[in-house]
Design a protein around this nucleic acid. Structure first.
Lengths: 231, 231
DNA sequence: GGGTCGATCTCGGAA
DNA sequence: TTCCGAGGTCGACCC
C-alpha cells in the first residue's frame, strides 16, 4: 500500500462525472491498483475512488498544466467499464509504501440470519401456543422467512427484518397473496417482525391486516446461552 | 489526520458484533475523531470503522494482553449509540500526522436528477405527441417523478430510475393506485423508465400493465448541447 | 429532528 | 455469471 498526502484536484468520468477542487488529501493506492481519495473528515466513504481492477499511469503534465502548478498527473483507468479518474498533483507532502499481506477478513454476527435463528428457537414470541413449521419456507416467488402455526393450527407467515421498512411489508404481502391461493395453507395470516418498524411500514401493515411484532435482539440473545459477550 | 500502519486485531460491538484477527493494516484517524481500518485490497469500504462523533482513548494493556503481545490498546466509543471498537496493537510499523484543512467537497452530474431533467426536455421519448405536465408532481404519498399527458390527453405517471429494480415498480404501483382514485386524473397509465431494467422488475411491471421504457443517457445527453465532455 | 430515497452504492449468497 | 436483497448502509433533501 502506498500512502501519499498531496495538494491535488481530481476529475472522474464514468457512470457519472465528478470534480474535486484543489485541496490537501490522502491518496491511498492499494496493491490491487485501486485508488482512494480521502479527506480529513466525513464518513468512511472516500471523496472519490476507483475500484479494482484498474491501472494507474503517471504522466508528465503538459505546458498549460505546469503553468497551473501541476507537478504530476495520475491517470487511473478501468478496462471493463471505461471509467477514468485523473489526479492532478500540485504538491506532494508525504509519500510512503508499506507491505501488508493479505487480510484474513472479517467475521460477523448479529445480522438477520441470527434474528431468524433466535425467533425460530423462541417461536412463542409470536404468541402463546405457536409452533414452528420451518425456516425459509419455499414458495414460487422466494422463501418466506418463517412459517409457523398458531394455537388453533392456522398458518402464520413471518417476514423478518432488522429494520422494518415499507419494502418488507410489500414483500410479505406478495407472499401472503400467493400462499392464500394454496388450499393446503389458506387462510394464512402475516406477521411483520423487526427490531425497529418505521411508522409508514406499520401503517401499511395494519391496512393490510398484517400484525407487527417488535423484537428485542439483546433479550433474545440473552436467552440463548450459546452466545457470550465480548465486552 | 493520523496514519498508523500496525499489526493489530480489532473487535467491534454495536449494531452487530465483528472481529478481525491479527494482521497488518492501515489505521486512519481523522480530525473529527473517526477511525477507519483498511486492508491492502478490496474496495473503498474499510474492514471496520467508527463514525463520528466518537472519541479514542489509548489504554495500557493488562498483564494477559501483554503476554499475548499487545503493546497498545485503542478504545473507540460513540456516546449516542453505545457502539464500541477496540484495536489491539501488537506492533507499530509507521505513524505520521498531517494537517489537511477542510475539504471543499465534490460536485457531481449524471445522477437521477439529470436523467429526469433530460426526459422532461425530451418528453416525446414517452411516445409521439406526449406533453409534460410537470416534474415532481406531488401526491399524498410522495412526488411522482414526471407527470405527462399522451396524444389523446390521458394522464401518464413516470417513475424514473437509473437501475430499474422491483422496488421502483412497487413505488409506481402505489402512486398509480392513489392517482387513479382522483377523478381529475383517472385513468392514469404508468411508465417505468430506466437506463437498465431487471428482468424481475420488467415481469412485475408487465403483470401490472405498466409500460417499460429503456433510456439511453448518453444519447439523451448528446441531444442536450448544454453539456460538454471533460474527456 | 425525523422520514424517505438515491447511490460510481458495496457486499454476500444463491440460482 | 447474474440476480437479488441487506447494510453498523451513507448522504441529500424535504418536511
Amino acid at each position: 500500500m502506498r500512502l501519499v498526502i498531496a495538494r491535488c484536484s481530481v476529475d472522474y468520468a464514468g457512470r457519472l462525472s465528478a470534480h474535486l477542487p484543489l485541496a490537501t488529501r490522502l491518496l491511498m493506492i492499494k496493491s490491487d491498483g485501486s485508488l482512494l481519495v480521502h479527506s480529513d473528515g466525513g464518513s468512511y466513504k472516500p471523496l472519490n475512488w476507483m475500484s479494482p481492477p484498474c491501472s494507474i499511469r503517471t504522466l508528465e503534465p503538459d505546458a498549460d498544466q505546469v503553468e497551473a502548478g501541476v507537478v504530476e498527473l495520475w491517470k487511473v483507468t478501468q478496462a471493463k467499464t471505461a471509467d477514468i479518474l485523473v489526479v492532478s498533483i500540485h504538491e506532494v507532502l508525504h509519500d510512503s509504501s508499506h507491505e501488508m499481506g493479505i487480510d484474513p477478513g472479517l467475521t460477523k454476527d448479529g445480522v438477520e440470519a441470527d434474528l431468524q435463528r433466535l425467533l425460530a428457537e423462541q417461536i412463542d414470541l409470536l404468541g402463546e401456543g405457536h409452533t414452528l413449521v420451518r425456516r425459509e419456507y419455499m414458495t414460487a416467488i422466494g422463501p418466506v422467512d418463517i412459517l409457523a402455526r398458531d394455537a388453533s393450527g392456522g398458518a402464520v407467515a413471518v417476514e423478518l427484518k432488522r429494520r422494518g421498512d415499507i419494502d418488507g411489508v410489500e414483500q410479505l404481502t406478495r407472499y401472503l397473496e400467493l400462499m392464500n391461493r394454496d388450499p393446503h395453507l389458506a387462510p394464512v395470516t402475516g406477521v411483520f417482525a423487526a427490531q425497529e418498524i418505521k411508522p409508514q411500514a406499520r401503517a401499511l401493515a395494519q391496512d393490510r391486516g398484517i400484525r407487527c411484532l417488535l423484537l428485542d435482539y439483546d433479550a433474545m440473545r440473552g436467552l440463548d446461552d450459546s452466545h457470550s459477550r465480548l465486552f
